[in-house]
């Protein structure tokens, strides 16, 4: 793995962010199994797609900036994209579920 070459000032916060992001994503997806109703389940993956993805993207920005020795911010694009799109899917699914339960 190439990650050994990352300087310590970037490696420590990136490692912490990776651990936090991984755990948040895991808990969010665990909610898909542990909650009993679809209307409760729809809230669970939002954890992974907001803060989980945000932490891992921030770690990616830190590591790639440290390796390139200049600020690399194009991971922000993925963050913007995920933040813009995941609510659309959640809203459509919510409305679809309401419609299908009524009909």
């Amino acid at each position: 793995m190439n990650a050994i070459n990352v300087p310590l000032w970037a490696a420590l916060p990136a490692a912490a962010l990776l651990v936090i992001g991984g755990l948040l994503t895991l808990v969010g997806s665990l909610g898909l199994l542990r909650l009993h109703d679809f209307h409760a389940r729809i809230h669970a993956p939002t954890m992974g797609s907001t803060l989980g993805a945000g932490c891992i993207l921030l770690a990616s920005i830190l590591v790639s900036s440290a390796l390139a020795q200049r600020p690399v911010v194009h991971e922000v694009l993925i963050a913007v994209f995920v933040v813009l799109t995941s609510p659309v899917t959640a809203m459509l699914l919510m409305r679809a579920s309401i419609y299908r339960r009524r009909g």
Binding site: N2, V6, G28, L32
Partner: peptide, 23 residues
């Protein structure tokens, strides 16, 4: 559909984490 959406987001995170690991 919700599970598929979650699967996609998680797959994206796996690829990003691999990118961090391989630099």
């Amino acid at each position: 559909v919700l599970a598929l959406d979650t699967l996609y987001i998680n797959g994206m995170l796996v690829v990003l984490t691999l990118g961090i690991g391989f630099g």
